[in-house]
Design a protein around this nucleic acid. Structure first.
Lengths: 203, 203
DNA sequence: CGTAGCATGTAAACAGTTACATGATTGT
DNA sequence: ACAATCATGTAACTGTTTACATGCTACG
């Protein structure tokens, strides 16, 4: 059996560490964290709500992991002030500690597998529809991931990170691409199997 | 009414539907749901806490999806009474509706990918350790999944479900096995790449 | 016999995380 | 009105801990 992963706070602490990881390269506002970092760079690894980002930043400030200061708006003058968040030494220490120790495996929770698990209640043609819809969804996700892979590979991404950071980021996209491809292949196998009569009543 | 789009942490409504799916074949107690259904049959698709099962059953009873009655313990002698939960017509309707419509894709949230995304902060040998530890964890999960696959394939699983239910359950295990294998292959690629010097300083 | 431990079965309290909606502010 | 930016409010789900009730079993 898979050992029960008992960790109280789940993987949710990851959100704080993701923020610390971005702040490590310089001060960022909450808005930019959400729109630039989470919605684009990190979208294939982790998603975060906007409200969640602000509340987490607040909590981190209270714990001394970051500091904040007001600054003029970026999109030109006149926009409301924003708060720029800066990582502290304590934040850097927290980030380093999290980075260097193995993370707990994520909980297994796949709604589509769950649905398929009980799919015997459905007629075979309905199961086929579900499988095809799921295949289309995963295909479009794969397309999106491939665009992200190109974006990561393009050379106009100077971040003063040297060669190392882009290499690791490419790896994470590669993982997502490989997983998506595998699941599409698996869906093709399922579609074929149901076609071959597995989903039919056996009398 | 039940919104068809993703809720909360990626379809937690799925838990109710999983319970309905098991209840569809006859009354079950909360304890058996947890120990027999979730901890073994469904462990590769979905996990559920024991307290969560009871809370959800209570909520479902309040909504009329299930009824409950007291019954003598299963060991026959002496064991305390348990509550047997039975699916209602409303529950069957809810299950059928959920089964027949496509599910929302789960949110992307992988703590290990997140860690690797920021791994440029670490020395290469530490990254290698992390990759190897993760590989070992996923390998043991793959071993566990293969044992589950054998258990599903063994012929002594008569459930009066005919041929269809076992076929679909095999598919779900196959998906988990394929995903685990893919991620292990990907980790091997990463380990090789870091070995080849990607993780070294380029200065 | 007593009692301590243990397994079964259920339940509630509490804290952490996420999602979605809404509001407030400021300047074009 | 609209967009950028920040903030709050609410609800849901998840997991952990603790508690309770019952009866079996083992040990002295």
């Amino acid at each position: 059996m898979c050992r029960p992963i008992s960790l109280g706070t789940g993987g949710a602490i990851s959100l704080e560490h993701a923020i610390l990881g971005f702040l490590e390269r310089g001060p960022v506002s909450g808005y930019d964290l959400k729109t630039r970092c989470f919605d684009s760079d990190l979208a294939h690894c982790w998603t975060a709500d906007q409200a969640q980002v602000y509340r987490t930043l607040d909590r981190m400030r209270a714990r001394g992991l970051v500091t904040s200061r007001s600054a003029a708006s970026k999109g030109g003058r006149g926009r409301p002030d924003r708060r720029l968040y800066t990582i502290t030494d304590a934040g850097r220490a927290e980030l380093a500690g999290w980075l260097s120790q193995a993370a707990a495996p994520p909980p297994l929770r796949d709604p589509f597998l769950l649905q398929l698990f009980f799919a015997a209640e459905l007629p075979a043609d309905r199961v086929l529809s579900l499988l095809r819809e799921e295949r289309a969804a995963r295909q479009s996700r794969l397309d999106w991931l491939r665009r992200r892979a190109e974006a990561v590979t393009s050379p106009d991404r100077e971040d003063s990170d040297g060669e190392r950071a882009p290499a690791f980021r490419k790896m994470t996209v590669a993982a997502a691409v490989a997983a998506a491809r595998t699941s599409i292949d698996w869906l093709d196998d399922c579609i074929e199997a149901v076609h071959a009569g597995i989903g039919e009543e056996t009398g």
